[in-house]
Write a protein that binds this DNA or RNA. Structure first.
Lengths: 124, 124
DNA sequence: CAGAATCCGTTAGGATACTG
DNA sequence: CAGTATCCTAACGGATTCTG
């Protein structure tokens, strides 16, 4: 049976599993902020206020929440250096977060394309 | 300057644009139901109640809303055959919806992997 | 069958002020 | 600096009933 990425076939169970996997991914990455924060993190912003400035429009409350969730999901590591003053807290993206780069890239490509489509529709 | 998919570089403006593109994509595809509905559509479910049965747990109100939004975004076409009785309404995924297959596939892969990670963490 | 109408609870997230 | 605490609103979405 030939199977390239254009003609993947799945049994019903496999299909259901994959669907729930898609949902899992959306659950972890969805919402207004998570991917934006991840991008900020991998772009080199590690301090709380730094991230807040980088991710425009986010409030500290929301940022704090999202960072906790991202940490729970193993995408970022919170480190505290209590020797320094003021206490230095850093949010470091894990290697695991890197695995999202390709996905983010694809989403971006699709989004760019989609914007073109939509705006050209308006012209019709 | 070498540029493979591991070392893409962007100017600040390009980066901001791409980021907003990612947001656009999430906006169009995000939420609890949209990708699930798209999967149902490309899987061959075209009638309203058919789709509702396929996408487990969705209410008619929500399904109706989502379908309208998907139509606005060009991902599905609503067709009515008023000659027939009862009136036959069908929701046909556009070719454009096919462009999501790869994305959905990647999300699925990532999700599968993520579930493994998370559940193995619990064992630690 | 294909939805619309209604009602209602939950939650995401915004604004702002405050604290160690 | 790195958050927490409060308050508040809008949107999401569930349940149910109704209709052409």
């Amino acid at each position: 049976m030939k199977e390239n990425n254009k003609t993947q076939t799945f049994t019903k169970v496999e299909c259901a599993d994959r669907l729930s996997a898609v949902e899992d991914a959306i659950y972890v990455l969805g919402g207004k902020w998570k991917l934006r924060i991840i991008v900020a993190l991998v772009s080199g912003y590690h301090r709380f206020n730094e991230i807040q400035r980088s991710v425009k429009g986010i409030s500290p409350r929301v940022l704090s929440n999202e960072l906790k969730i991202l940490e729970l999901n193993g995408l970022v590591k919170r480190t505290v250096d209590s020797e320094s003053f003021p206490v230095l807290v850093e949010y470091i993206p894990t290697d695991y977060a890197e695995t999202l780069k390709e996905l983010v890239s694809m989403l971006g490509n699709w989004g760019v394309n989609h914007k073109k489509r939509i705006s050209s529709e308006i012209d019709l």
